[in-house]
Design a protein around this nucleic acid. Sequence first.
DNA 1: TAAAGTAGTTTATTTTATAAACCAAATTTT
DNA 2: AAAATTTGGTTTATAAAATAAACTACTTTA
Lengths: 94, 94
Amino acid sequence: MFKELNPLLHSELRLAVMSILLSVESADFVYLKELTGATAGNLSVQIDKLQKAGYISVEKGFKGKMPRTTCSITQEGVAAFEEYVEAIKSYIIK
Amino acid sequence: MFKELNPLLHSELRLAVMSILLSVESADFVYLKELTGATAGNLSVQIDKLQKAGYISVEKGFKGKMPRTTCSITQEGVAAFEEYVEAIKSYIIK
DNA sequence: TAAAGTAGTTTATTTTATAAACCAAATTTT
DNA sequence: AAAATTTGGTTTATAAAATAAACTACTTTA
């Protein structure tokens, strides 16, 4: 009847991050922060969780002298997101 | 860009309960428990939250001699659910 | 060189989700 | 008919999550 909702994706901020990363090649920390409106602390934590789950890859480098964290979605992440979409539909589609 | 997800509905069990109640006139505690697979304790708590939010109405009576709790969705609940559906779509529809 | 800004991380707090333990009444078993 | 079990829940305790505040380290500006 109802499919299970992957708890790692069933989170407003993590879902937003994944949704953004699905539509771009990659996105840096500042960009994700602006688009989501999240605080830096919250975003940092959630990015970490997504990375540890293998749903995104995170590269920490520098743009000039300033630190820059770049994220992109993994194949595993795409698959998990698609599964989540199917699952949530089981609750909202009549 | 992303719409806010009503935290009261952004919960697997509460969403399942609301989804069921949308499609039936009313449902009792035992029926909801069977369909959702939730424990009685968890279901009890979540029903309470939905009721306090005004999203469902709860009637406690008896069927013969056994207690029976009957739930049905309110207009407010329908509206909130529909808004949630629109909101979640902003994350999952490309 | 002091103040303010940037790009984050770590820590602490509040909220949630969930299950375990419990309760009262009804039913079944012995 | 007493004891055990089941039914239909509620309350309480615990684990997990979300979030913001505080902090770090470096850079730019005044």
